[in-house]
């Protein structure tokens, strides 16, 4: 299977197009991953129902038994519990960093350690999150899994 990337200026939205004769195993595997990645989640924002792409979510947090998904400019209240989100979307980059926060690995700019041996996560939207020490090993394992997957 070939991958051809074409840059088009002033494109409204990026899109993928698949050209095929028969869908073989390899193509099916790519489609499976795409289906996961291009999934959407419903929630409420300022009393309105909204649909957001999972890939737009920076992190998901539980506050007072309510779950919020944070995108670049919205905090959307969603119905799913953190546990369910992890079960369903961990393979597309969502990983737990504390009891109440799940982060999207693809939205992390960098990590930094502090004097108390806590890991500070700098997100691409310039927000900072603190990783709990007990979730550190799982986080690094997940990150290495993604690295291995992207190398394939």
């Amino acid at each position: 299977m070939k991958l051809i990337k074409t840059r088009e200026e002033n494109l409204e939205e990026n899109y993928l197009e698949l050209h095929y004769d028969k869908i073989d195993e390899e193509t099916n595997a790519v489609l499976d991953r795409l289906r996961d990645t291009l999934r959407y989640i419903e929630g409420t924002y300022e009393d309105k129902k909204v649909t957001i792409a999972l890939t737009d979510i920076f992190y998901i947090e539980t506050v007072d038994r309510k779950t919020f998904a944070y995108t670049k400019d919205m905090s959307v209240e969603i119905k799913e519990a953190l546990k369910d989100i992890l079960e369903e979307y961990s393979k597309i980059g969502f990983v737990r960093i504390s009891k109440s926060v799940i982060v999207n690995i693809f939205k992390i700019k960098k990590l930094q350690g502090d004097i108390n041996m806590r890991v500070i996560i700098f997100l691409k939207n310039d927000e900072k999150l603190i990783m709990n020490r007990s979730y550190k090993n799982d986080f690094y394992k997940r990150l290495n899994d993604l690295k291995g997957r992207s190398a394939k």
């Binding site: 350690g113 041996m117 990150l143």
Partner: peptide, 24 residues
């Protein structure tokens, strides 16, 4: 040893993140 491992892990993770971000 814990202190050194802690910062080495972060350094390695930052390299992986850099790679993932450059692939986007």
């Amino acid at each position: 040893v814990y202190y050194i491992c802690f910062f080495v892990q972060i350094k390695r993770a930052n390299k992986v993140l850099e790679k993932l971000n450059s692939e986007e």
